[in-house]
Design a protein around this nucleic acid. Structure first.
Lengths: 357, 357
DNA sequence: TTGTATGCGTTATCAC
DNA sequence: GTGATAACGCATACAA
């Protein structure tokens, strides 16, 4: 209704120039802190800046990006923002990006591979200067990654794709698996059921590998019949019901187990549901441990003991890595793909307790 | 590795022109389906399109946006993506946006008011053609909204700001509050504790109003001493512990209550924790109902009965509203701010059950 | 030290 | 029907 009256005319650099009495180029130089600006008198600079602020001048990004090809933005592409793990990682990344001059441009693929690739193209097209990918599973090596990597620095959070030449930042999953099993063991549990990750994890399932290492070091044999593997159909959306189903299956076989280690928190929550439905209490009859430390493991009752991922640090490193690469490519120096793995930590809540003698 | 390495050089419209033997302007006209293109022979069009595809030409958005001032993007600004409610709403919006030619440009303010306003400015600056704001609480009338509204269509999801001339899409909170209380009542509960929303909700607390209406219609008095109000410090991050605290308080006063209606799901989860810590079982000793139907109310055990918001529809309407406004302003027709309220629905899980006689 | 001229890739308005 | 040309707003090399 009110839109016909005031067409808010944008203030351009030439307006600032006129108002301050200098030429547009001078204004540009000053406002961008160009190297040459060191030779323009402080007084001039101040005057220009003042006028710019007074007119609340904001450069037109399209013109700026068209001219140079820098956009001052970092692309963030998330495989599925409904996945609480992704949301947590995103938070870390955003916080790390805040003090930098870069603007995050985020896209959510909503678990759709095609969308994911499409968005990657779009982000490159939008001239993002770097790309941070948050994808925790079901992400195979993609031709797009390699193509994109030729044009801009790129890092992936949550998966290890370093062997394909893509920098990666992840939690040390093996250490986490080790810790989870160790925790149950030290509480006195010896009959432990395990729900492993799906085969398809291109990580291989390092959490499982960590458990195997623990088993070896402590000479504590893992009994195969108490172990189930998540199917490849496992996603953030199906984790709960799969966890419930596999646990029901374990219970049905009337295998004894006094503790259960799940591949992740949501799977663990499904396990809790199954145990409860079978009339077993957690942790009374069975201790349960998860992995990831997503918000729901803290807000359910009993709170679920889990392995925490330092996503704040991971986000930090992801951002720093991108900025480093940017600087490197500016300086023409080499920039190797690297893998950063961060140590997880144990968060003890109420779903685990010492084995009653 | 002997494969032909194409340098990441961008293909421009002039390349397509050369390759197809026509002029850049003709190419532009055809590829954009401009009105004039009706007069260029089908054969020419086809040839141009073919070449464009062959070279995989993608127009430079910066040049395009600089020239015209349309960006083909819709801005989405989220007050806090960690809030599962926001995440849910976002999902609905994204899905609705998918089949349109508009690209979502999303920013997450991470609960920071200043960031929020800053991002709003940035989005306007980036020439988004419309703005969808997802903010469920703690959002007062902002000068920015009104300013922005003069430049582009804007709709807010999750709050009713229609009285300030901002289109809004929300769930019918009053109906929801009514339903929640009705559910407990029909299960036979008469001693019902209630945790109301904070005063600061600029909605006023319509959920509470709905409960009052139920109370009147059913001649079922609400007993004040069983009612607690969330403090203004209530946020997505503090909801759990506030719910726990208020419930502990209620229990401590040894007031009898056989059911509890919480302002939202997370608060309800806090209540469950408090009840459990006090040795009371849910729903055995006390039924609990939440509001929103966020994921964690389904994945905890027992699952929490709650009031579901049709966020998919709400997202749909938000997007449609923006597109309508866009069309209107193109046609110069009037475009009134409106309020759309959607009916919620009851989702019965395991945290409520009939009162044992 | 400051100003002028040029080009970034498109699209729209004209002539042809 | 098609093609040359101007303009969008800015940054930069170069001239003054």
């Amino acid at each position: 209704m009110a839109e016909a009256e005031t067409q808010p005319k944008r203030v351009k650099i030439i307006d600032v120039a006129r108002e301050s009495g200098f030429a547009p180029s001078t204004v540009s130089i000053v406002l961008n802190n160009a190297p040459v600006s060191r030779r323009v008198p402080a007084q001039t600079q101040e005057r220009i800046r003042m006028v710019a602020k007074k007119l609340s001048y904001r450069p037109n990004i399209f013109a700026r990006s068209l001219r140079g090809s820098r956009s001052q933005t970092i692309g963030i592409i998330i495989f599925d923002i409904s996945d609480p793990y992704c949301a947590l990682a995103l938070d870390g990344i955003q916080r790390a990006l805040l003090p930098t001059p870069y603007l995050p441009l985020m896209m959510d693929a909503r678990s759709d591979r095609e969308q994911f690739e499409n968005y990657m193209k779009i982000l490159v097209e939008r001239r993002v200067e770097g790309l941070i990918v948050v994808a925790t599973w079901q992400l195979e090596q993609s031709k797009f990654f390699l193509d994109a990597r030729r044009e801009l620095p790129i890092i992936i959070v949550g998966r290890d794709l370093s062997r394909y030449g893509i920098s990666s930042a992840i939690v040390d999953n093996e250490a986490g698996g080790y810790m989870a099993l160790q925790h149950l063991y030290e509480l006195g549990h010896r009959e432990i059921a395990i729900i492993r990750g799906p085969d398809k994890m291109s990580n291989g399932d390092n959490r499982w590998r960590g458990m195997q290492r623990f088993s070896k070091e402590y000479r504590f044999p893992l009994v195969m019949k108490r172990i189930r593997k998540l199917p490849d159909s496992w996603t953030a959306a199906t984790a709960f019901s799969l966890g419930e189903e596999l646990t029901r299956e374990l219970i049905g076989k009337s295998l004894r187990f006094t503790a259960l280690a799940a591949f992740d928190d949501i799977t663990a929550l499904g396990a809790v549901r199954a145990l409860s439905n079978a009339g077993l209490s957690v942790p009374g009859d069975c201790s349960v441990i998860g992995f990831d430390d997503v918000p729901q493991s803290a807000t359910c009752t009993p709170g679920v003991t889990t392995i925490h991922q330092p996503l704040s640090e991971i986000g930090d490193i992801a951002v720093r890595s991108i900025l480093d690469s940017l600087r490197h490519s500016e300086e023409g120096s080499a920039d190797m793909a690297h893998l950063r793995a961060f140590p997880p930590s144990l968060v003890v809540r109420d779903s685990t307790k010492p084995l009653a003698k």
